[in-house]
Amino acid sequence: MPNAFRNIAALLGVIVAAACVGACGKISSTDPAENIVLTTQQLAMKNYAQNCSACHGANGVNGAARQLADANYLASVGREALINITTNGVSGGFCPGSGPASLAQWDAKQVADFVDGMLEAWGKNGVALSIPWSVKLAPAGNASNGQAVYAATCQSCHGAPNFKGVTGAGSVTDPNYLRLITDQGLRTAILFGRPERGMPGWSGPFPHQAADRKLSSQEISDVVAFLRSTASQKQ
């Protein structure tokens, strides 16, 4: 009988020890009851993964849509425009936005917190470009100037204006592509490039061009106007 009691006592000891280990492990790890308060940045990253990562890529890079983990891009667009895009999406584009009218139904504070968290995570030390990002602030474009700029800086990768194939970086004068992208989308792509895919932004370097060849705000507008003109010629 005393043996049985000793076994039972030992067992109880093991159980209590295991429960303590479990409970302590619990307190120091992520709490399933979510009673740990997330920082603005953690919350933004959680919301990003849930609502944005499908197109913009895990951790803000390598998605089909624009890379958001880009401090200079975030600084150039600015907090106000980021809040607007997050709320309303991109008009004429695919981004549906997360504002009150969307499925996510964030209110103004949730949107602002999200943008602040994103700026905290990815926007540190970002420098706004001297060239305006928004097409609303950009000069009007001239298509024939744009054709010359295109031939000099874009053509070696994207092909001649009448090229519709897939070699190189692929056609950007494909009318279907141009119907799916807004002028703002084109301007953003030319201004910032797609660094993760090897496409240079406004400051180059462009193949077969002088190393210090940079595009001006006017030249970017011209290229956008030229690209638009190829589509309208087509239709």
Binding site: A54, C55, G63, A169, D174
Partner: peptide, 21 residues
């Protein structure tokens, strides 16, 4: 899935602008 599952990055390598769209 449509908002939370990133397109696998390897499926985006070397794609044209139209294919990215």
């Amino acid at each position: 899935a449509w908002t939370s599952m990133p397109t696998p990055p390897q499926y985006l390598v070397g794609r044209t602008p139209l294919e990215m769209q």
